[in-house]
Design a protein around this nucleic acid. Structure first.
Lengths: 201, 201
DNA sequence: ACAATTCGGGAGCGATCGCTCCCGAATTGG
DNA sequence: CCAATTCGGGAGCGATCGCTCCCGAATTGT
């Protein structure tokens, strides 16, 4: 029973996410955010409490959009596991480059900038990491069940390697490394899953 | 022909490096540095010009000490390649944990925090990366020449995978991930180099 | 002894930081 | 219509930012 907002809160969070994503937490000032979101300080603080809370909202928004899309792209595919993984990792290192190369992954950037000092942030980055690992795990399990991977392959082990590789790829995209070199790393990581088992007669 | 410094410039750079390493560039204030290095602002600016220049000095110091030690540990060893690589990567994820866990790698932290925005910083992080890749390359070449690696293995390709894995490991150490999981990733990365060639008769 | 020079220390510069408060305007339910 | 409530906008809070300047003290070559 009062005056409604004149701005879209979701759009604001989206803009804030992009800003935090590119510049990081400490390098992004509240005034920068205000300019980008076209919000006066009073509206910003009334809506989002403070900078830190807005940052958490941005992290949650990123997980709900970018991270969620990554998980979907990995789950949905019903092609051979190796192809799926290869295409997926290639997408990981090219998707942030669309229009804004060198952004890397917001979660990775945040994890390295803030480390484990901020517990609320740590929980979110860790949850995002766990989602990725779980997605890798299910895709590998599916591949093993379809006979595309050796039955002797320890899936949890393979997840650790692939996940670690993904983090490395994200850092390298942020650092502006050539896509060709990243592709090389991706191909070799996929090949590390071992040979395709021979078809039983 | 004037009064000499009463502080050790090298010690100051070392302290500055540790501070920048743990907190990052933007989260470290000149006053924090002054307190840690026991330097008044005037001495600090007279000696190091400004914060940005001191940061570059810190990066150079890190490369000359930590990065150089990493390169040495990889070069010097004359054990089997796989063992060398495994022990080396294990050291990479445990060495920063000595007394100060969760520091990760100063170069990686810097690369992700500042991206490619700061050209002077970018050149230094890229140079550090290239040193690591070169060290990996020579170790792999040595292993191949000793017949420990398949002659069919493309060394440049393997370097890309190992290097990417190393960056991922550094991120995960910073994020506080268990050493056991990192060890798993390391073992699988080494195994990705392929089987040891059969001894020719 | 003597200038010359750089030192450590501290006050404090303008700018920006995260954030608060107050305002008149707008939109609500009764 | 009216009180209630929240809005957008802007001034400005105290604190801290990166940095500068000035000082007397200390160490130099001559």
């Amino acid at each position: 029973m009062a005056r409604p907002r004149q701005f879209d809160e979701k759009n604001a969070v989206t803009s804030a996410t992009e800003l935090f994503w590119r510049r990081g937490y400490h390098a992004t000032s509240v005034r920068d955010l205000g300019d980008e979101l076209k919000l006066t300080p009073s509206s910003l603080y009334r809506t989002f409490t403070d900078k830190h809370t807005l940052f958490l909202r941005a992290l949650d928004h990123y997980r709900a959009t970018e991270s969620a899309e990554a998980r979907q792209r990995l789950d949905a595919a019903d092609h051979p596991v190796r192809e799926v993984l290869r295409e997926w990792m290639l997408w990981l290192v090219t998707c942030p480059a669309d229009g804004a190369p060198g952004r890397g992954c917001f979660v990775v950037n945040t994890a390295t900038e803030l480390g484990t000092t901020d517990e609320e942030v740590r929980q979110r980055t860790e949850a995002a990491f766990e989602v990725t690992r779980q997605a890798l795990r299910s895709v590998l399990a599916e591949g093993r069940d379809r006979g595309e991977l050796s039955a002797g392959l320890d899936i949890d082990d393979a997840v650790e390697l692939l996940f670690t590789t993904v983090l490395g790829l994200r850092v390298r995209e942020r650092a502006g490394h050539d896509i060709e070199r990243l592709t090389t790393a991706i191909d070799l990581a996929v090949r590390a899953l071992g040979p395709t088992p021979a078809e039983p007669a």
